[in-house]
Structure formats: C-alpha cells, structure tokens
Design a protein around this nucleic acid. Sequence first.
DNA 1: GACACCTTAGGACGGTCGCCCTAATGTGTC
DNA 2: GACACATTAGGGCGACCGTCCTAAGGTGTC
Lengths: 188, 188
Amino acid sequence: MNGAATRARIIDAADQLFYRHGYEHTSFAVIADAVQISRGNFYHHFKSKDHILGAVIEARLAATRQLLDQWETEDADPAGRIKKFIHIVVANQVDIQNYGCPVGTLTAELAKLDHPSRAAATSLFTLYREWLRDQFALLGHADRADALAMHVLAFSQGIATLSNAFRDEELVQREVQQLCDWLSFLLP
Amino acid sequence: MNGAATRARIIDAADQLFYRHGYEHTSFAVIADAVQISRGNFYHHFKSKDHILGAVIEARLAATRQLLDQWETEDADPAGRIKKFIHIVVANQVDIQNYGCPVGTLTAELAKLDHPSRAAATSLFTLYREWLRDQFALLGHADRADALAMHVLAFSQGIATLSNAFRDEELVQREVQQLCDWLSFLLP
DNA sequence: GACACCTTAGGACGGTCGCCCTAATGTGTC
DNA sequence: GACACATTAGGGCGACCGTCCTAAGGTGTC
C-alpha cells in the first residue's frame, strides 16, 4: 500500500480515537488495531505518539479552515454564517453528547498533561475566534468584535459540556435558540 | 498515625492531583509520594484506584453541599446567591486558567473513559443545577427555573473552558459582568 | 509484660505502555 | 531479472502500571 495513504489512515484513526477516548488513554496498540497494521510499524511513519498528535491537530486545522471557507462561499450574510457556527452543537449533537466538543476536551486534556502540543490545540480555538470576529466586524461591530466572538465561543463550549454531562437534547435546542435570539438583536 | 487521618490525606492529595493532572494520568506512585506513604499501603485504605475516585467525588459532594448551605445563610437574597455562584470563576480564576473547572473536566474525562463513576461526577453538576433552580424559583421564575439554572451553569462552563484555553483574565471579567447584567433583567 | 489489632513498609506479580530494532516484503526503474 | 528504496511485520526493550501479598511496626487493653 502507498505510504502516504497509510499515514493518512493512521491520522484519521488516531483523530477518532483521541476524540472518543482521550489522547493519553489511546495506546499505540489500539490505533494499530484500527488501521490494521503492526504496532512497530508506526515508527516508520511517526517518531512518537506526540508526533501523531501533532499531525492530527494539523489535519483538524486544515479541515476547520476548509469548513470556514466553505461557509464563506455558501452564505453571503455574516449573521447567517454565525448561525451556522452556533448550530454546530446541534448538527454534531450525538457525538457531543457522547464525547464532548473535540476542541474543548482536547485542549483541557493537554493542559492537564502540560503537553507541548497544548498551544497547537488552542490554535484550533483561535481559528474559530478570528473567523467569528471577522463576521461580527462585517456586521458593524468592529469595536467589540472579539468580545462578541468569545461570547459565542463560550456558550458553545458551555452547551457542549452540559450536553455531554446530562445528555440533554432539549437543553441544546433551547440554548441555541436563545443565542440566535441574542444574535438578532445585534443585527443592523 | 490514625488510619482515618491517613485516609483523609489520601483523598485530599488524590483530589488535588486528579484535578491538576487528570484521573488517568495520576498514578498510585504519585499519590503515595504526595502523602508520603508506601505504594502498597493503599490496599489497606482503598481496594482500587476507582475506590479512591469514588471517595474523592463523595468528598467533593459534601464540600459543595456545605458551600451552598453557607451561601444560603450568608445571603438572604436569592439573586445575591446566584451572583455568588457566577463569581466562582472569578474567585478561582488562577486554578481555572491552569486546570479548568474541576467538575467539568472530571465529567468530560470520565465520559471518555466510560468510567463507572461518570454518573457520580455528573451528580456534582446536579447539585449546582438544583440549587440554582431553587434560587430562580424564589425569584418568581418557577415555570422556567430549571432552564435558567442550566443557562447559568452553561455560561460558567464556557467561561472556564475558554479561560483555560486562552488564559485570558479580561474575558472572565467581561463575561461575568454580562451575565450579572442579564440576571438583573430577571429581577422582580 | 502479653496480647490482639490497626497500620505500615517494601517489594513481587502479570500486564501494558511507548519506543525502537531487524528482517522480510513489496514496488518501481533500468 | 537486478537493483535500490519504500513499506511492513513481528517482536524485544526497559519502565511503569494497578494490584496484591507478607512481614514488621505501632498502639491500646488487660
């Protein structure tokens, strides 16, 4: 098999497993099982588990950039784009109920581990933050665009955490609706 | 030394370590070092690491109940009590910046580990939820008291997550102020 | 002082971890 | 077919994991 393809499959499997069971709890053996290659073979593709994590974060960054770009072309209205972001927690409700927010839980875990990739994981948040900030600036709130962006980000994280803890679907619907209402008041 | 005292010291040290470095990442050896007892000695006090976790959660539940009771006696105004809760993220800002919310991060980790004590950890959230619900009911919002309680809870979690990710003090101040303003609109 | 019992020390156990090596196999080029 | 190189299989390495055992030490009662 092509080496690059195997590498991509490792990243993909590791991404899923890191998300579902946490970075530390995911062992080489489990990833190897998922990709159906031998354990020792990893060394050829990645020098260490940390390097796999680095590649996973990089892949997520690329995927996130693509998603945000796609939203830019799909929706001409900045407010509509923000709503698309807000509705992530609804679209991914099942996963979030089971495993929490992929970004929030990863940064939290890496912070506790004092892991070198902590900053890289935070940059995933920054991607959303700056994108949201741009949208709010377009809506005429350039002076407090960053604060508004962080407000939206914070509520998404809060909803994700409680959705995961209580497995409460109604809560998600209700809070999302509330945040969309709040957004409407900001429109020109 | 008194056995009960040693047991209490184990719980206390484990609580700190679980919070700062995560449950799974905290080994027997590290706890033993912190308490200054031998590794194998744990078996006399706790059958397994899971039992230590159980005891830690129980201790946190007791401490939380005591805190909430104290607030009830300290402040006769339900709105004032809610503000006390909101300001937890300010009072514990340093710890939260470094390690996140003790409840939120624990439930998230246990969810990923599919750990038996997951439900027990969630009951820590429930404690706050029901207390907040009671406060909002006292304020004359019995019909939607639970939704309001969850709103405040979600906010706290979101702030804690972002505070931990970005280490941004200003963000905390700003969002807390905003939520207090929101609370003022609900007052009779 | 004798005794029972609570508490502790220290280490062995089977297992798994992340990591690393070597030999074999596949693949493309000439 | 010969060769160079990319990829893989399989397993060993030392370290550490959570658990469990035994023997020693401490403490209180009579």
